[in-house]
């Protein structure tokens, strides 16, 4: 028995390199299992306890803070190259409680539970009094802006007809009065110029997703829309490592019907294809 008041766990510095390795493994795991929204990046390690694990290894019990980046979870850009969403863009924080097993020098995530929350309106106003605040993604004006932007995009497209997959975030801009929206689209088997009945279009078997940013501005007697979309290169479906050690196909319909498949564990670098701009 060890001397002194043995509490069962070891304490490490939150900035200990081993602690950071465990935290980065947890963030990577969380990002690979997000089904919508944006990748998160490690901001701060709040707490860490290291428990011995029988018969081998040790378990890092941690609390970590993350920040939303501007990279969508379907974006193959490596996390290290993803800019953090700034305060004036209405930042979003994540709070995670994770258990990470270290065994034979390897980190494996056993569990992860995260809650995300936007910065308070008061805090945004402090740094940027005129900045637009996040609004619910199902806001009527937001949905209209996304649909109008996608229609404009398809009207200018010489390729596939794209369908709306997800509205990822949106802000109502006070001056000039406009709606800013970021959304995900997916290519269908229809040709954009020839579509007559959208309900007959099907998503491609090799899913091809795109990410769009649009601003819809109200004008006297009408509205104006500006949209830019980035189409991601088709990504192979790879088995996703699970906490219980089994592998699961990312797009397995038994798990998440009709949900976009998460990006691969090691996405190819520099695989972005820039689509048309309207």
């Amino acid at each position: 028995a060890p001397h002194g008041p043995w509490v069962g766990y070891l304490v490490l510095n939150c900035d200990d390199p081993e602690t950071e390795q465990a935290a980065l493994a947890a963030v990577d795991y969380v990002n690979r299992h997000l089904l919508w929204g944006f990748k998160h990046i490690l901001n701060q390690i709040d707490k860490v306890r290291v428990w011995p694990r029988r018969p081998f290894g040790e378990v890092f019990e941690m609390e970590i803070d993350t920040l939303e980046t501007t990279c969508h979870v379907l974006d193959p850009t490596p996390l290290a190259n993803c800019p953090v969403r700034q305060l004036h863009e209405h930042a979003v924080e994540g709070d995670c409680k994770v258990h990470v097993l270290k065994q034979d020098g390897q980190f494996h995530v056993l569990s992860a539970k995260c809650d995300s929350s936007p910065d308070s309106a008061e805090d945004v106003r402090k740094v940027c009094p005129g900045c637009a605040l996040l609004v619910p993604r199902n806001n009527t004006a937001v949905v209209h802006a996304a649909e109008a932007a996608l229609a404009a995009f398809n009207a200018q497209s010489n390729g596939s007809y794209f369908q709306l997959v997800e509205i990822s975030r949106a802000q109502l801009v006070p001056l000039p009065e406009s709606t800013y929206v970021e959304f995900v689209v997916a290519a269908t088997d229809c040709v954009a110029k020839e579509v007559t009945d959208q309900s007959q279009c099907n998503l491609l078997a090799d899913k091809q997703y795109g990410f769009c940013k649009a601003t819809l501005t109200k004008k006297l007697g009408g509205e104006e829309v500006a949209v830019t979309c980035t189409v991601f290169q088709t990504q192979p479906v790879v088995p996703q490592p699970q906490p219980d050690g089994t592998n699961q196909t990312a797009s397995s319909p038994a798990v998440v019907p009709d949900a976009p498949s998460p990006p691969p564990a090691s996405p190819p670098a520099a695989s972005l294809v820039v689509g048309p701009m309207v």
Binding site: V11, L12, N13, C14, D15, T19, E20, I41, L42, N43, Q44, I45, D46, K47, V48, L67, V84, L87, A91, V92, E93, D119, D123
Partner: peptide, 27 residues
């Protein structure tokens, strides 16, 4: 620590430092 010469000063492991550094900004 300040001590008289010849007087032993208790030294132990530094307490762990948590929370860790903020990499970007605090929300």
């Amino acid at each position: 620590s300040v001590a008289q010469p010849g007087v032993a000063v208790a030294t132990g492991p530094a307490p762990p430092v948590c929370p860790g550094r903020i990499r970007y900004f605090k929300v």
